[in-house]
Design a protein around this nucleic acid. Sequence first.
DNA 1: CCCCAGGCAACTG
DNA 2: CAGTTGCATGGG
Length: 304
Amino acid sequence: MSAPPFETAFRVRDYDLASTLHSGQAFRWTADGNGWSGVVDGRWVRLTQIDEETLGAETWMEPGDWGWLRHYLQADIDLRALVTQFPSDPALLEAVKTCWGLRLLRQDPWECLASFLMSSTKQIPQIRQIVADLARCFGTPVPTPPGRPVWHAFPSAKRLSVLGEFDLRTCRMGFRARYLRAAAVWVTAGQLSLESLHTMDRTHARQALMQLPGVGPKIADCVLLFAYGFAEAFPVDVWILKALREIYFGGRAVSMSALETFAAGHFGPHGGYAQQYLFHWMRRRAGRVTAGVFGGMEEYSHGH
DNA sequence: CCCCAGGCAACTG
DNA sequence: CAGTTGCATGGG
């Protein structure tokens, strides 16, 4: 068996790594030189965008065939084919052009659920801070190259289930501690089987998640989209609410049920991708994030 | 001091 | 039912 460092390269098309890793779907990626460090599948990983057609990856543990990382990155998704299934909609096309290369990741269900339980009335930098504290305090250390900061795996449900709310609150999550503890206990006890959601349809999987205290429609949809790959899931948060109201309802107040009906009918089978583009576009316009490698200058043209 | 944050649950009318 | 309010904590 070979020794670290382990490195590989992924051939990609239309993949903007920076936008993807900072789009508010995953919370642990940290700028590291010309790349980003994080933990995937219990391994420390550093990712770089070598050029528009190549992503670089290095780790310090035996990586096998790298399938775990390819799966996480969803690098085989044909983005150009996917967006041709979007509705012919000026605002959406503008978002797609501006944020071209933005992707959906495929995250671990437990980490995704726990992270989004931390998200209610928190800004993304604060969610990142809570998740980082959780990993540092309760996660298992993972091998990293000498001279680098120590990285920890995200703590398992079993590990968190034995903690009290007081312990969890040391990570500054406030009232969310009760929700996180309940989720950890339920998942550990098998009262909610995260594995079984893979075999359910979206409606039933959503119902199962919403049994958990602290999981409403928005957080459930985030988990369905970011961890289980339900492509139609369309999380409606404050940014998307504002976007849909401005773009499609002339700024008028709209009920949540009306929005859900509209979104399901308008955005089609890849509503989740449409949502991610609208979300990122709104945040970029508000100056919360900056443009990625394609800089919004791509020659993207729509198929209609 | 104010207000708000990738929401949700509990409480009103 | 729909609409409002409290919630921990941090930052502008």
